[in-house]
Design a protein around this nucleic acid. Sequence first.
DNA 1: AACTGCTATGGAAAGGCTTCCACAATATTG
DNA 2: CAATATTGTGGAAGCCTTTCCATAGCAGTT
Lengths: 343, 343
Amino acid sequence: MGVTIYDIAREANVGIGTVSRALNNHPKIAAKTKNRILEISRRMSYQPHAYAQGLAKRKTNTIALIMPFFTNYFFVEVLQGIQDKITDLGYDIMLYGVNQTNQVEEYLKRAIQKGKVDGILFFSMKLPDGFDTRLKELQLPTILVDTFHPDFDSITVQNEEGAYVATRYLVKLGYKKIGMINASLDSEPARMRYNGYRRALEEAKLPFYERYFRISKHSKADGFNREAGYQAMSEVIDKNREDLPEAFFISSDIQAIGALNAMKDRKLTAPDDIAILGFDDIELAKHIGLTTMRQPMYQMGVLAVEKLFHRIQNNDFPPSHTTFSPTLIVRETCGTEKQQTKS
Amino acid sequence: MGVTIYDIAREANVGIGTVSRALNNHPKIAAKTKNRILEISRRMSYQPHAYAQGLAKRKTNTIALIMPFFTNYFFVEVLQGIQDKITDLGYDIMLYGVNQTNQVEEYLKRAIQKGKVDGILFFSMKLPDGFDTRLKELQLPTILVDTFHPDFDSITVQNEEGAYVATRYLVKLGYKKIGMINASLDSEPARMRYNGYRRALEEAKLPFYERYFRISKHSKADGFNREAGYQAMSEVIDKNREDLPEAFFISSDIQAIGALNAMKDRKLTAPDDIAILGFDDIELAKHIGLTTMRQPMYQMGVLAVEKLFHRIQNNDFPPSHTTFSPTLIVRETCGTEKQQTKS
DNA sequence: AACTGCTATGGAAAGGCTTCCACAATATTG
DNA sequence: CAATATTGTGGAAGCCTTTCCATAGCAGTT
């Protein structure tokens, strides 16, 4: 069926070694032979067999991507960065989208299966127990993105600082009663964002109101979801009818959307009644004018690929950890001087 | 480094053939030998080498997914359907996300590269010239989703009918001056949606107003983007200040978002000033209460995988074409009796 | 005891490539 | 012009499986 180097070798009256050298532009080959072989292989529309090549070279030119689907927007943007960069490098992506947490181990095992991929990009989830040592034993290059482990290269976002900057911004706008809607504290980013929020309040000598703080109940995706935001905001409003907070820092945009819906259902608007500040800058945020903290997702994707490549080429250096600072994106929900950000 | 069947054979004092038979539970092997070998291979934590296996079996257990990133939301949901189904079947996904149209050929070539994948799922784009015959020559099973070619299995959505149902709904609500904002007519779905819209108008004996019809200019993604919607709506409003249309059918949700932004900037709201009906039901739609036509994306993903599997198992039957009908999702932008769809 | 018919097993071959080693052909040097 | 260095080439070995063929071992027949 397929054309092999043997067919080409016969056609060109050379040995298979020579064909291989011609195709891989090896230095030790005469220019004319090489050209003749290339011409013939083109004519016969030769395609190297990826698996045979991989087997011989002990290299797959493929990397595994293990990431949760439930991060949705984040996911797509990071993916673009990864895809663009990786295509340049001639690699392919094996995608493992995680829907339920129990799939993580399954996918990791698959990706680890000998010879399947040259490296792993692992996203936004805790590396399951045992896999840290296993990955190191296997010497399989692995980069963590949006999650951390001291023994692996990682790329994360300064959650604490981001939350701090966000809250300070609300302070600067003159709000005094600043609440927070957070996701489950099981989540490391959620804890960090809480810390940053508290730090900003303390620094401004503003009180922390227990009644304006709420952790999303809906546990899907650790509480980083719309329903959770809706419910949390509903409760806060309904229990504090007479004394509403002036502003909210919310631990993710998607929760902020839910919170805004809850406000809308109660005829409250942002920023007139309550100012809202989110986190993530998902694509949706610009559509609805949500002021938020932006994570440089595309760049994180690109950097992740770069780090992985260093490791694939040479795995012999200590882990490096990069953190990005989120940046404040001012839109409308915090009531600045009507800065129409149209982008 | 890695443990091979030779290591196991030595350890168990058997031949490699026996080891292979034990691992693949071949019938002709004594139960005790098999158990002993399995035990040993577990102890040595043997992992079969995926590429060697693929080479020997002429089977990769991998499929390629070629899809445009710019469909964003659509993309993620279809992907979930695919992933869930494919994981059950023990296959892996090679992802090729297309950002610019010129990447399509590049990715197709890569996917075609001999032995890399057992089949291809091709999405939402026209199959580039020449690849139809090439894919058939290679006998590489290929399924088209959201696009069509007579020679390949396909899964599409009834765009004409969807647009017809959408427009008829607007008619039923009592609107007379019904405009449409469409994407580029280069796009087959855009043409079909236009036809459905016209058919519904004719059937209701309502006039087609040239001045309320507009094709999005911004060419990115064939005009299926937010900026295009924004601009088209801006023009229609600004040129018809004195005599605004009552309702719009818009060829995609993302354009509808842009259109709503344009209205908001002019202090117009939906449905009070102009009713808006979209197409796609991207996740975003429910957040903003957009009435729209839903495509069963998850199911399309699942079905695509199923079709591909039939072909991988037996490629010897004529192409089948499946179409799904979109369903009307009533939310708020068309002014029904305030049906709070909270989901 | 000799034969037949099974079943379980060993190991070569095949899958398609890269790479290494040996050697032939050519070029360089004194 | 012989001796040496250089370059290019053929093809075996190796990567790790699966699969096929031949055979050993054994139970059952006559």
